[in-house]
Nucleic acid binder design. Sequence first.
DNA 1: TGAGATTGCGGGAACGTTTTCATCGAGGGA
DNA 2: TCCCTCGATGAAAACGTTCCCGCAATCTCA
Lengths: 338, 338
Amino acid sequence: MAVTIRDVASAAGVSVSTVSRAFTAPDQVQARTRQRILDAAAKLGYSPNPAARSLRGGGTGTLGLIVPDIANPFFPPIVKAMQARARRLGHTVLVADSDEREADELETIAAVSRRVDGLVLWASTLSEDRLRGIAEQLPVVLVNRHVPGIPEVRISLSAGIAQAAEHLRAYGHRRCVFVNASREELRRGKSVHESFEALDLSLAELGPYEPRFETGVHAATLVAAHGATAVIAHNDLVALGVLHQMAKLGIRVPQDVSVIGIDDTLLASVSTPGLTTIRIDPEEIAVRAGDLLIETIGARAGGAGSSGRTSGAGGGTGFVEIGSRLIPRASTGPAPTH
Amino acid sequence: MAVTIRDVASAAGVSVSTVSRAFTAPDQVQARTRQRILDAAAKLGYSPNPAARSLRGGGTGTLGLIVPDIANPFFPPIVKAMQARARRLGHTVLVADSDEREADELETIAAVSRRVDGLVLWASTLSEDRLRGIAEQLPVVLVNRHVPGIPEVRISLSAGIAQAAEHLRAYGHRRCVFVNASREELRRGKSVHESFEALDLSLAELGPYEPRFETGVHAATLVAAHGATAVIAHNDLVALGVLHQMAKLGIRVPQDVSVIGIDDTLLASVSTPGLTTIRIDPEEIAVRAGDLLIETIGARAGGAGSSGRTSGAGGGTGFVEIGSRLIPRASTGPAPTH
DNA sequence: TGAGATTGCGGGAACGTTTTCATCGAGGGA
DNA sequence: TCCCTCGATGAAAACGTTCCCGCAATCTCA
């Protein structure tokens, strides 16, 4: 049914080996012959069978990306960027959703692991041992999770948080509230508290809660009780919940209270008022994570062949840190003068 | 390196054929033997190599889904639901993004077509001829696109639009504006105009524009000029643009103007005020499209073998229609009494 | 000009599975 | 008791590639 390399070979009057070479190692075949093969392939509409290719041992040409929840607006831009990047490098991306549950995550990984050359695991909930086990089977890059010996992309919110503190301080705020739902990337580096206290800003912490819209709704009513004039929320979604409830309570944003989100998702840019937020660049994450994974795959493939070459960069573990920055919009403003 | 069927076979003391059968046709092997094989496989951590499987001709076990833009908040829930459904049926889903450009779409399809058993093409921009060509190569299901002879899932907004008209009419609105960006699914069935005029509602049409936030911002300023008291927007994103600009103009929603979106994305449920919108159930689409594709794949595989059996359901084309309904929230209310 | 190096290509094994066909033993009807 | 059937298993081909070898022809250099 489908046209195979053999069809192309006989159409071009060469052997299958030569056709294979014409595609995978163009400089090993004479220009004239190659052209003849390419013409024949084009006329027949030939494209190599990836299954056969990967069976032979050439890898699948596919990168796996496992995220906690595709429906979380933070992830789609990352998926998109990683696809674009991978495509340019001749790879495909297989995205899967672990549904934030450990059992599902394991099942998901099992389902895709044989179809990919490597895996980007986002905020995995798996134990260190299990992750090490997976990383033994195939190249893995962790995002927002640290396991010694496994390459990692870390998102640092320090810069963004520090800028947020400066921003609020400059607007004259003194008492702030942080609506927390335990972000892994906040636990590392300078804490939110440190950043705020360094600027003589008091910071009350609410939670930890679930990172949902309703959490923001709930938290909004507590803010007044704290006498705070600024709220920084776990993410944009929670911040929108705060905005929503503030409006319902007749509290004006930003005149009475300022609100800051995290992630700079689409949500933040289309809310009313526009949400001041801490941006994490999805494109940067996608590109760095993708490149790191490809690099790891390459190292594994190359390093496995030579024996005993454990020294140097061969067994080295990649590490990349992604920064963040404040995007001021309309949800923050001068603190009320009283 | 990886454990193969041969390892399992020798561990269980049987031939590879029997191991293969133990997995793919469990009732063709004695219960005792099967258990022995399953134990051995579990102990060795064996899982079949999908590449080898599909090379042999068993299909890839993967469904392709090509959407115009993954970052559009309408799609992630669909992707998620389709993944979940497919997983339960023992398939994997490969999602790709055509970036709304025809050249990219063709390239995307080429990149994934050899890796999947069939394709769900969402709102394809390709010509009928090209789509027919693709559908000849592999099973295809079209969503929001009609080409005779190709299975199709159609989204009907008629019910939702009619309910929106009733809703506005009951609130006493008489003059409405429709911000249009040309939705394929509106061109079919009863038009928006018909639905509104049937209830004696005047409907002015703006556009067509691009379906972006800024479009809503732009359109909002025109609404007042029309003396309209209600706006229905191309989708939730555009509706949010309207909301945003209304707030800036000091026009209250819903006291002065009512706003309705389409899609019921996350955006609608977290906006302030909550956005009244026309819901299209992502789960239903995903399940129906996925099932239709699987059915088409099955028919192709089974029907291709027997010669001349073109009559009956063999060459039949599946067709599924998905409904819609109004979700009233806080962005609609009684028309101002003048 | 002849020996070795290089270049261009063909032959064939190997990848891991499924599936057809053959084999072997047991059970059943005559 | 013999033949036939049937059920369980094994042997081997086939799927479409890639890549290691081997072979011939051309090239390089003394």
